[in-house]
């Protein structure tokens, strides 16, 4: 295995994704991500000057709908499915900053 990514970087990505990894899982994810980055390094090594970047596997553009109002969901039905609702709205625990 190569070490294209550090376990610290993987831990940071895990935190951003709100994933809680055990030490073993962190090691495993680090190995797997390094292998993927190896693969991208292989692609990087190719001469792809003449190849257009692919932004989507479907080679189509401009799939759009008209600006027409469609049915909405029933609020009471939706809020019944929420853990807690109040005053026609979803009630959530106090929001902490993105840093917290």
């Amino acid at each position: 295995m190569s070490d294209r990514i550090t376990s610290e970087a993987v831990a940071k990505v895990a935190k951003l994704a709100r994933l809680s990894l055990s030490d073993d899982e962190l090691q495993q994810a680090t190995h797997q991500l390094s292998d993927m980055l190896d693969h991208f390094a292989d692609i990087d090594a190719l001469d792809l000057e003449s190849v257009e970047p692919m932004t989507h596997p479907m080679d189509i553009a401009n799939v759009m709908r008209d600006d027409v109002v469609l049915d909405v969901l029933d609020r009471e039905e939706v809020l019944d499915a929420a853990p807690v609702a109040e005053d026609g709205r979803f009630r959530v625990p106090p929001i902490l900053g993105l840093d917290d």
């Binding site: 109002v69 049915d71 809020l79």
Partner: peptide, 25 residues
Amino acid sequence: RTKLFSGSPNHFGDDPNTNIDPVSL
């Protein structure tokens, strides 16, 4: 008249959670 990716109304000041659909939720 409607949202960027779905057909529920784009309208300010309506009762909370009345302009909702599976995409906006």
